[in-house]
Write a protein that binds this DNA or RNA. Structure first.
Length: 416
RNA sequence: GGGCAGGUGGCAGAGCGGACAAUUGCACCUGACUGUAAAUCAGGCGCCCUUGCGGCUACAUAGGUUCGAAUCCUAUCCUGCCCA
């Protein structure tokens, strides 16, 4: 399911390939976020065209609407949203954290008050796995729980304990589902080549089951999540506990929740060494370009973050510095007055649609006028910036120049 | 010509003797967003400065009453509606 293709000699950075039923995912990789089954303002085909190989969608949101049963009827989330690449689904664990007081946590699971209609729902580790099976994602995550920052040791201990218990229950449920009969295979379609058959070659590994996606069935991987907040011993403990359960991949969670960046990197360093070397490691919810580069250096293989898409909607554009300007990148807020009569592209070296066709002045006007096109152009631009960043990272690792690249992104530049 | 209502910061529109440099919305300026309750949120928005329970100038214009006026009185100008 995952192979390491090349290791950097000076850092823990590496190239790898995650094999899924929906194609190979070349790491280090960035997953654009499509929480509700859509990358806001972007069509799936566009994203694929730009080279994205895997996206992230959210169990909680899709469960609430339109419901996983409906998505299963549609032939799985890939089919429903016409995304040909791989899908990584978050378990709903983050909503336990972000929805705050609308949520009650108990050992059994999490009680949510729906943000849609106020009704009460209970999400358990088992339900999360079931929903993700219905969604048919390629990679499913276990339900986890974590405190914000700062957290007391007691809270962090509780979170580690609960996350491990929930991980065991998720695995148990995932195994049960893997042995069920597969219903509703669309007429005229067969098991995908490389799906079921591949399963035979892969040791009956924990965390792999069958999943429907309407175009053939293949293994859905279940990945574990580690917690531990800012406590070194708890990070290690959580990593070891989750590692022992034997997942197809691992997520480092509970980071970028308000802690200083250095704390996050410490958490990675206190976690990564205790996870299986030959398994993919995902850093949940991270981050800025420089954080991603640094995390790659610490052995992280995949990332997801709302930054490029959300900030795009808020008018922030990411721009690489030109070689003659130094290295790294900077950002601009397109709504700034100084761009009012700036009749040049956001970045004339950028291959994105907006940079090829429109000026800063025009895009600023679109934002000022609340024309949806502005948001769309910004989202396209930032996603391409992030995808390009990952491409550069991969190329650099291949060429043995990763350390050099990582220095370039040591910090965000304050230019304009 | 007569009657009535009204003129407040870029706009709309509160306030109707002191706690008003003046509620609020819009516009405008700036910032923040990290497994998306987020096309959201926060701050600023008369001028000056050593940024302070600071100074100055302001609620159509000019006077007046008052310890004190955007708020009361008088006149003037202007706007809207109604009657001739």
């Amino acid at each position: 399911m995952f192979t390491v293709a090349k290791k950097d000699s000076k850092t823990k950075a590496r190239r790898g390939i995650i094999r899924t039923a929906h194609g190979e995912v070349h790491t280090p990789v960035f997953l654009p976020i499509g929480t509700k089954g859509a990358i806001k303002s972007i069509a799936a085909e566009e994203l694929k065209f730009w080279g994205a190989e895997m996206i992230l969608a959210n169990t909680y949101h899709l469960w609430q609407r339109p419901g996983d049963a409906l998505i299963a009827k549609a032939g799985g989330l890939h089919n429903f949203m016409n995304w040909k690449g791989a899908i990584f689904t978050d378990s709903g664990g983050f909503q336990v954290f972000s929805l705050g007081k609308m949520v009650k946590i108990a050992d059994a699971g999490v009680k949510f008050q729906s943000d849609l209609d106020g009704s009460t729902h209970i999400l358990t580790p088992e339900a999360s796995v079931q929903i993700q099976a219905n969604l048919g994602s390629d990679i499913a995550l276990v339900l986890d729980e974590f405190p914000g920052f700062p957290a007391t040791k007691k809270q962090a201990e509780q979170s580690v304990k609960r996350t491990t218990e929930w991980a065991k229950r998720a695995i148990h449920e995932h195994r049960k589902l893997s042995s069920r009969s597969i219903p509703d295979l669309p007429a005229g379609q067969s098991f995908g080549v490389g799906g079921i058959r591949d399963l035979g070659k892969i040791p009956a590994q924990l965390g792999e089951t069958l999943s429907g996606d309407g175009k053939g069935y293949a293994a859905q991987q279940l990945w574990g999540i580690t917690q531990g907040s800012t406590f070194k011993d708890l990070r290690k403990q959580s990593a070891e506990e989750i590692y022992k359960l034997g997942f197809a991949g691992y997520c480092i969670g509970g980071v970028a929740v308000g802690e200083p960046s250095e704390e996050m990197f410490k958490a990675i360093e206190n976690t990564q060494p205790f996870l299986e070397e030959e398994k993919p490691k995902h850093l949940l919810g991270v981050g800025t370009p420089e954080q991603i580069v640094q995390a790659v250096a610490l052995g992280c293989d995949s990332f997801d973050c709302v930054i490029p898409t959300r900030e795009a909607r808020h008018g922030k554009f990411y721009i690489n510095l030109k070689p003659q300007e130094g290295s790294g990148y900077f950002t601009i807020n397109i709504d700034n007055e100084k761009f009012k009569e700036d009749f040049i592209p956001v970045d004339n070296a950028c291959p994105c649609y907006g940079c090829g066709n429109y000026t800063r002045a025009y895009i600023r006007h679109l934002f000022a006028s609340q024309e949806p096109l502005g948001i769309r152009l910004a989202t396209m631009h930032n996603l391409r910036f992030y995808l390009n960043l990952m491409e550069r990272i991969r190329t650099a690792i291949d060429a043995g120049g990763f350390e050099n690249l990582s220095k370039k992104y040591a910090a965000k530049k304050e230019a304009a």
